[in-house]
């Protein structure tokens, strides 16, 4: 048995790959649900109802999808250029704490039209800085950025923990480590009244289109894709590799940092060390499910958010641990990798 590269890949195959991968992941998780003694179809039905069954749950799912879209875009732009940014989690936290710091100290009295853009920017910049470090280490010392960006996740969370237990600690939080809140004027307005859904969702949606435009229609997008396809080839063609990767890191780290800023300004207003239930890591899965396509990221983030939000209600009703959502999302990454492979290769005897 051997694998042979397909010469022609029909569009249908490319489009059907992610749904097929997700279906395979759902079948595999279904086996786990069945071994736990719960009815599989009912479990999935409850997940769907839990995620979209009411006005409240639907807006909740979109709220949850918002940071996932941004961390997913962050991973997608980086992976496209073969910058292995696995540090989305740390960039998210650093973006969040930068937003909370600037919002509660410097811009506490500023009007919303001024503070919101500035706070989003400070979150993005914080995320950028955290990714520029591993990229610089790669270019300077040829250190694999996978490991360094991963290790920085732990450092970033500890920095956040230190700040919210120290200079940024909210004295009114009953001793609980929690950052001071940003001013109410700096909070993102609600997109839907009487829900948690905020304008961050629209920002993320617009950014998906912007990133798509940048990647497919600009010189920078071309250079970054060239750097990903073949670094040597890109250099030979005159692409300034270091500068291109630097800009990719700014974009990717910025998007992940922005995810943290948006989560603070849209939902909580303050930072705790459990602000993110793994948004950075899930963003990697979202990007892969999307085939690294910015618009696909929107759909993949919706799928992931559906699983996470829907699993809560299902878990209560059927006594299946909520971790089943994490398992399904992780499995869908693996099935997606396999599905993409078989979209590119056929089996020959």
């Amino acid at each position: 048995m051997r694998f042979e590269r397909r010469e022609h890949r029909p569009l249908a195959l490319i489009i059907l790959t992610p749904p097929l991968a997700i279906a395979a992941a759902l079948v595999l998780s279904g086996l786990l649900i069945a071994t736990a003694g719960a009815p599989v179809m009912e479990a999935y039905w409850r997940i769907l109802v839990g995620a979209f069954g009411s006005r409240l749950s639907a807006t909740e799912t979109l709220t949850r999808a918002t940071p996932l879209m941004l961390t997913g875009l962050a991973a997608a732009v980086a992976f496209r250029a073969r910058v292995w940014n696995i540090g989305g989690e740390g960039q998210f936290y650093l973006g969040a704490i930068a937003t909370a710091a600037v919002g509660s100290q410097l811009l506490a009295g500023a009007p919303g039209y001024l503070s919101i853009p500035l706070l989003l920017l400070s979150g993005a910049v914080a995320g950028m800085i955290l990714l520029i470090m591993p990229l610089w280490l790669r270019l300077r010392f040829s250190v694999d950025e996978v490991v360094t960006s991963l290790l920085l996740n732990f450092v970033a969370v500890l920095v956040v923990s230190m700040l919210i237990d120290g200079p940024l600690k909210d004295p009114l939080a009953f001793g609980w480590p929690q950052s001071q809140s940003v001013a109410d004027a700096a909070m993102l307005p609600k997109l839907v009244a009487r829900s948690r859904l905020h304008w961050g969702f629209a920002i993320a949606l617009v950014l998906a289109f912007v990133v798509h435009f940048v990647q497919s229609r600009t010189v920078f997008g071309l250079k970054s894709r060239a750097a990903g396809l073949s670094p040597e080839g890109a250099v030979f063609a005159g692409v300034p590799l270091a500068r291109t990767l630097f800009l990719v890191a700014c974009l990717s780290g910025g998007l992940a940092g922005l995810a943290g800023a948006v989560e603070v300004l849209g939902v909580k207003g303050y930072v705790t060390t459990d602000l993110s239930p793994g948004f950075g890591y899930s963003g990697i899965v979202v990007a892969m499910l999307a085939g690294l396509h910015p618009l696909g990221v929107v759909l993949a983030a919706l799928f992931t958010a559906t699983m996470f939000v829907g699993a809560d209600g299902m878990s209560r009703a059927l006594k299946i641990p909520t971790y089943i959502a994490d398992v399904t999302v992780a499995l869908s990454l693996i099935t997606m990798l396999v599905a993409v492979f078989f979209a590119q290769y056929r089996i020959r005897r």
Binding site: L32, A36, W84, I86, V146, Y281, I284, V285, M288, I320, P321, Y323, I324, D326, V327, V329, A330, L331, L333, I334, L337
Partner: peptide, 21 residues
């Protein structure tokens, strides 16, 4: 890189799932 991350995400979430079950 990506396969390894997939295995890590799967193995850790699967162990939490089994443990809690």
């Amino acid at each position: 890189h990506v396969s390894g991350l997939g295995v890590t995400l799967f193995a850790s979430s699967f162990s939490y799932y089994l443990f809690r079950l």
